[in-house]
């Protein structure tokens, strides 16, 4: 059984991205921009909580070509994602006719891993495009 490298692109269908509000350039006791220098200065506490550390996971090397490769389109089950996967797959078929396109429905939905499907993609796929969101 030949193991292939799988490249995953996550589609965020108009949903979310997450950024922190931490300002790394700030220093303790940083002075705020001046507005009225005559007013007495005071020191106040930062009201923020603590963001968690993030474990960076290794990413798969990218493909050098899509020709002859198998790309999985994973429908996570939100309404309409099946239609979107279809039209995206149609685009790949039209523009990359040498690419093998496979559309699959994930049993894990939007928030759980479908281990069987992930194993199948790892074995048979070269890349996966996973549709998330609304």
């Amino acid at each position: 059984m030949k193991l292939r490298t799988t490249v995953t692109a996550i589609l965020c269908l108009g949903l979310l991205s997450f950024v922190t509000q931490t300002d790394p350039a700030s220093a303790q006791g940083k002075k705020a921009a001046s507005a009225d220098p005559q007013m007495p200065k005071i020191t106040v506490l930062n009201p923020m909580g603590t963001p968690p550390p993030v474990q960076l996971k290794p990413q798969a090397p990218r493909l050098t070509t899509l020709d002859g490769k198998t790309i999985y389109f994973v429908n996570t089950g939100y309404i309409g994602t099946d239609r979107l996967m279809d039209v995206m797959a149609d685009w790949f078929k039209a523009n990359y006719p040498k690419t093998n396109v496979v559309i699959k429905r994930s049993a894990g939905g939007m928030d759980r891993v479908d281990k069987a499907l992930w194993a199948e993609i790892g074995e048979k796929g070269d890349a996966a495009i996973v549709g998330l969101g609304h």
Partner: peptide, 15 residues
């Protein structure tokens, strides 16, 4: 990541 500076100093309007 961290929360940034623990305190900020300035006039009330600035803060």
């Amino acid at each position: 990541r961290d929360k940034g500076p623990l305190t900020f100093t300035g006039t009330p309007d600035e803060l």
